[in-house]
Design a protein around this nucleic acid. Structure first.
Length: 881
RNA sequence: GGCGGCUUGGCGGAAUUGGUAGACGCGCUCGACUCAAAAUCGAGUUCUAACGAGUGUGGGUUCGAGUCCCACAGCCGCUACCA
């Protein structure tokens, strides 16, 4: 730092305050069971997305959200809430294991070092966390309860009648066999094609594939035995209950799209005596289905393929399985496919349609088979044109003139809703004389869909079906650094281990290198794998998401050794007392959750799923985990690009703290712009807020000799006689409080700047008002505010209360009142004059004053006044022409 | 291709939800202090010489539009053959 800048001694007092808060446990939060817990106090739970403790330390993006929640937490505390504001570490993860591979060192060591560094950095920013509640997902005591929750899922199933999870013991009591029960457990084993990465030595979830591919790892598709979680059972509730949450619409939309509900029908086609079922969202277009397409992996393909087509079908299937590894994202690739030689019978008109296989139909969605309606589906249209398949139009736009009967050759598929025609094709405008219920002609798409589904169901040719894009959650990994499954195998069956054996921890390994086979790393530990009773441990581990699915629950009762959270703690921290912006009873436990958009889908969906299961099973009392969600915007580099090591535009929070102090970093991150907006870093902006803090310092403190300060003689214990100053102070008390509630921190800070400028210019700074100002500054810049307050208190012999423990000052509405205001005079909507008049001036007074203005006359001369609009206390608009 | 978000001075951003566009900060200019510089303090700063114009573009509603409606464009995210 250049010595030129006039500083304030933040390097001395910031660490001192941090030490004091720590040693006095200023921000410790008493909970149920603690002797000092007051159950009558309302709770407020404000949560940060806990970080993955990477080797590179905190990024400036982290303190953005953390400062926002810190301000809210401190503010709510000062308003009488019992605030839960905890921090922890999502500490399992591939990077620590990669490190272990290279060094041979146990990943726990590297993880502990990284956590220590994160903790040091977080503490250097003065956050008001209750450090007694700090947790890491890798702590054995934490792992115990992650595994315990897994067992709750393992031991329950989704009851379709009640639409909720229930214990499988209820099924056993009804006489279900073990095999039947294993079919319905939330946690189940399946042999499914998964993404396997040989060099990482693990299977990846669909959503992780791109990330690791972009880091240069290879990924291939392989069928493997994996643990899955039946999240799809909750698809509908995960959509419906979004309505009970105060989340940004964009995030709700992302989750809905990810779950991907579509309504339609299953239709059965007869193929040489076999039934092939397709899923369609457009059953109304069944008369336009001119061919069928199966996914290349569809199990019926070998059965139905004719002898002549066998070779070509086989080689196409082969090319697809290798192609899917490479560029399946390649959009512009032409449609490909081959004819199987087989035909299916369209159930509505008994016509034969050819069956093809093509890689644009995927096994993983719907039934892996489609009826192709080229006239009304773009992909089918493109395919039909490529392979000269017939195109039959059965829907026309509803805005075509009545009686329009000639079909134009289609240039593109018509995919919108419209009016059904040729269904069946007895000519335009005619109804089928034989069976009216079977004629869709002239019906709107919605009506035609409903009618067709009725027909399918009453003729046993198909049924209504709701389809989701969401797949079951691939929950096993072949890594070392994750929670082992609390499962053992005996005689080919899986069993839960008893709760008393938890936590089940992985033994240290001689080396952490992947074997190159899909065999999990833990299988190397043969002593551990084989149990004395002849059973073997499951060697897969859980994904990193597991720990982050429930950490917000553990914060409520982190030391509990007999339950994952006590009933009392759960009940208290779930109690709802916050006003909601939605028209619903709040349903979430955490009042405010702040974090980045990158978790919009996966983490937030997985955590909701676990929470709902725990809710159904009676372990928690709210149906949702997070009531209000706010996404902080990305902080870009000074060049407007995303911060990255390769671009060299990364800002390290440590450097900023060293040069400008923690308060300046906190304040700058809040002053940059709205929390949710993407915004670029500007070091000059940090200097700006640092100057502001120095100005606040100088209102109170005058430098004597180098490094020694004395309270400014301007500060006096006198009533505030300066009406204007008093008004600015009370406007600040009002606006800062309101802005914090709205999370509009940048405007709160600008108001505090205005207030500081007023103090700087005042000859006398009244102690009471200045202290009130420091109190509202405190959540933003707690070190500086406490330091000045302590110094001032000492000089005036006042008790040295921490500002953090005082109550939020209430503004006096009377201090805000101005007797005269600037009144705007417009002519035809354009500003022409400003007059000082009484705030309460009535229309007649204002009109007279306005018309008397010389500036107004210039613009109304020679015109007739047609109308005068009067807005009390604001303006007058004279309409002249 | 689909969905979502954004667009206001040289820059980051304000604007009571239809009522003074540009608060606050950065940068810049000038002045004070200083031998000088830095720091600090003070004044100014949308564009234009001016009339005027002005919130991505074009239209509309209104006494009045950054704000509401219609059309379009440009950036940024996420997602992707989902039947």
């Amino acid at each position: 730092m250049s010595d030129a800048r006039k500083p304030f001694p933040f390097r001395e007092f910031e660490p001192q305050w941090q030490q004091r808060w720590e040693s006095e446990k200023t921000f410790r939060t008493p909970g149920p069971g603690d002797p000092d817990f007051d159950p009558t106090k309302p709770k407020y739970y404000v949560l940060d997305m806990f970080p993955y403790p990477s080797g590179s330390g905190l990024h400036v993006g982290h303190p953005e959200g953390y400062t926002a929640t810190d301000i809210i937490g401190r503010y709510k505390r000062m308003n009488g809430f019992n605030v839960l504001h905890p921090m922890g570490y999502d500490a399992f993860g591939l990077p620590a294991e990669e490190h272990a591979r290279k060094t041979g060192e146990h990943p726990a060591i590297n993880t502990a070092n990284n956590i220590a560094n994160f903790r040091r950095q977080l503490k250097s920013l003065g956050f008001a966390y209750d450090w007694d509640r700090e947790i890491a997902t890798t702590d054995p005591e934490y792992v115990r309860w992650t595994q315990w929750i897994f067992l709750q899922l393992y031991n329950s199933y989704f009851c379709e009648e009640t639409n909720r999870a229930k214990p499988v013991s209820e099924l056993a009591a009804k006489g279900w066999t073990r095999e039947q029960i294993d079919e319905v457990r939330f946690a189940y084993v399946a042999n499914t094609p998964v993404w396997w990465s040989p060099d990482l030595g693990t299977v990846l979830a669909n959503e992780e594939v791109e990330e690791w591919k972009s880091k240069g790892h290879t990924v291939e598709r392989r069928p493997l035995r994996q643990w899955m979680l039946r999240i799809t059972k909750y698809a509908q509730r995960l959509i419906d209950e979004l309505d009970t949450l105060d989340w940004p619409d964009g995030i709700k939309m992302l989750q809905k799209n990810w779950i991907g509900r579509s309504e339609g029908a299953e239709v059965d086609f007869d193929v040489q005596g076999h039934k092939v079922t397709v899923f369609t969202t457009r059953p109304d277009t069944l008369f336009g289905a001119t061919y069928m397409v199966l996914a290349p992996e569809h199990p019926f393909v070998p059965e139905i393929t004719t002898a002549e087509q066998k070779d070509i079908v086989g080689s196409y299937q082969k090319s697809c399985s290798s192609k899917s590894d490479m560029d399946r994202g390649d959009l512009n690739k032409d449609k490909s496919g081959v004819f199987t030689g087989a035909y299916a019978i369209n159930p509505v008109n008994n016509e034969q349609i050819p069956i093809w296989i093509a890689d644009y139909v995927m096994m993983g969605y719907g039934t892996g088979a489609i009826m192709a309606v080229p006239a009304h589906d773009e992909r089918d249209f493109e395919f039909a044109n490529r392979f000269n398949l017939p195109i039959v139009q059965v829907v026309i736009p509803s805005d075509l003139p009545a009686g329009y009967g000639v079909l134009m050759p289609l240039k593109t598929a018509f995919c919108d809703h419209g009016i059904a025609i040729h269904s069946p094709p007895h000519g335009w405008g005619l109804k089928d004389p034989k069976g009216e219920r079977y004629c869709l002609n002239e019906l709107s798409t919605a009506e035609a869909k409903a009618k067709m589904i009725d027909w399918l169901e009453s003729n046993a040719k198909g049924k209504r079906r709701i389809q989701y894009k969401l797949r079951d959650w691939l929950f096993s990994r072949q890594r070392y650094w994750g929670e082992p499954f609390p499962i053992v195998w005996k005689d080919g069956h899986h069993h839960a281990i008893s709760d008393s054996e938890l936590p089940l921890l992985a033994p240290p390994l001689d080396d952490y290198k992947p074997s190159g086979t899909p065999e999990p790393l833990l299988s190397k530990a043969t002593d551990w794998v084989n149990r004395p009773d002849g059973s073997t441990h499951e060697t897969n581990t859980m994904p990193q998401w597991a720990g982050s699915c429930w950490y917000y629950l553990r914060y409520c009762d982190p030391g509990n050794t007999s339950r994952f959270i006590s009933k009392e703690a759960e009940a208290y921290w779930s109690s709802s007392n916050q006003p909601s912006t939605i028209n619903h009873q709040p349903s979430g436990m955490v009042d405010l959750y702040v974090g980045g958009t990158e978790h919009a889908v996966l983490h937030l969906l997985y955590a909701r799923f676990w929470h709902k299961a725990l809710f159904d099973l009676g372990h928690v009392t709210t149906p949702e985990p997070f009531q209000k969600l706010v996404n902080q915007g990305l902080i870009l580099g000074e060049d407007g690009q995303k911060m990255s090591k390769s671009r060299g535009n990364v800002v390290n929070p440590d450097d900023v703290v060293k040069e400008y102090g923690a308060d300046a970093l906190r304040l700058y991150e809040m002053f940059m712009g709205p929390l949710e907006q993407v915004k670029p870093w500007q070091m000059k902006g940090v200097e700006g807020v640092s100057r502001f803090l120095a100005r606040v310092w100088r209102v109170a403190c005058e430098e004597q000799t180098d490094g020694f300060y004395q309270i400014s003689p301007k500060i006096r214990e006198v009533p505030c006689t300066d009406k204007e100053l008093l008004r600015v102070v009370h406007e600040t008390l009002k606006k800062v409080g309101e802005d914090i509630e709205k999370l509009s921190f940048n405007t709160a800070i600008s108001q505090m700047m205005i207030c500081t400028n007023a103090f700087t210019q005042a000859d006398v700074v009244p102690l009471k008002e200045f202290t009130q100002f420091l109190t509202v500054l405190n959540p933003f810049a707690p070190h500086l505010a406490e330091e000045i307050n302590a110094r001032v208190a000492a000089v005036f012999n006042r008790p040295a209360h921490l500002l953090s423990e005082t109550t939020w000052p209430v503004y006096n509405p009377e201090a805000l009142i101005r007797s005269e205001i600037e009144f705007i005079i417009q002519v035809n909507g354009k500003l022409r004059d400003r007059l000082m008049i009484s705030k309460d001036a009535d229309e007649a007074t204002a009109t007279a004053a306005g018309l008397a203005s010389a500036k107004v006359k210039e613009h109304t001369d020679g015109k007739t006044i047609r109308k005068i609009v009067f807005v009390p206390g604001k303006l007058l608009n004279i309409v002249a022409g």
